[in-house]
Design a protein around this nucleic acid. Sequence first.
DNA 1: ACCAATCTATAGACTGTCTACATGTAGACA
DNA 2: TGTCTACATGTAGACAGTCTATAGATTGGT
Lengths: 106, 106
Amino acid sequence: MKADVLRGHLDSLILAVVDEEPLHGYAIIEALRVRSGGQLDIPTGSVYPGLRRLEAAGYLTSGWSTTGGRRRRTYALSASGHRALAAQRQEWIAFSSVVSAVLRPA
Amino acid sequence: MKADVLRGHLDSLILAVVDEEPLHGYAIIEALRVRSGGQLDIPTGSVYPGLRRLEAAGYLTSGWSTTGGRRRRTYALSASGHRALAAQRQEWIAFSSVVSAVLRPA
DNA sequence: ACCAATCTATAGACTGTCTACATGTAGACA
DNA sequence: TGTCTACATGTAGACAGTCTATAGATTGGT
């Protein structure tokens, strides 16, 4: 799966997995891999900047914890993050409908 | 509809409309607007570079014509363009399935 | 001693899309 | 005559999100 097709959709995917339970970066990558049936393997260089971006936008809040000597920064959805996710789900439906309609052979 | 979500999909959309009939750039923009129910209004600064990119890749061939004093560069799918379109339709199905699966609320 | 897995993070490159600009014709309207 | 809209192509430069590559650290297995 080429990189560009993900562009603009990664944020939604992250918000969606964090919506179900608060997760740290590494676990988000795992969750996306599992939920996509192995199709999605997002590199850390995409996820961590994405998380910072989403936190800067106010959609996520984060906090540090330590489990077995390992530092974890766990992210959770804020109220505006929930609203953003709902909006982005709608936008995805609209977008995918349009692309499917154009792409479908006549 | 934000610009980034289109990234990586515009090429497929162009190939799909040109597949049905050879079209020039301006007509491609029109066709995409019509087929998307007005959702897609791709700026010329995206379409023309895209057409050149696709021609450079060997997916499109082009030729000039003049209709009523207006220069038109009409594009048609090449054999490898047909193959690329078929592959990209498959990729879209895979991609949209994955995103839908992750985005769908549990 | 070494290596794989876990965990966070940054720097810099890449590239496709965007806005803005540049150019020109045809036809309608005042 | 002048102006406007639609038609038609194209480039330059800005923008931004993704990528690769690199860095550092802990834990646990062999």
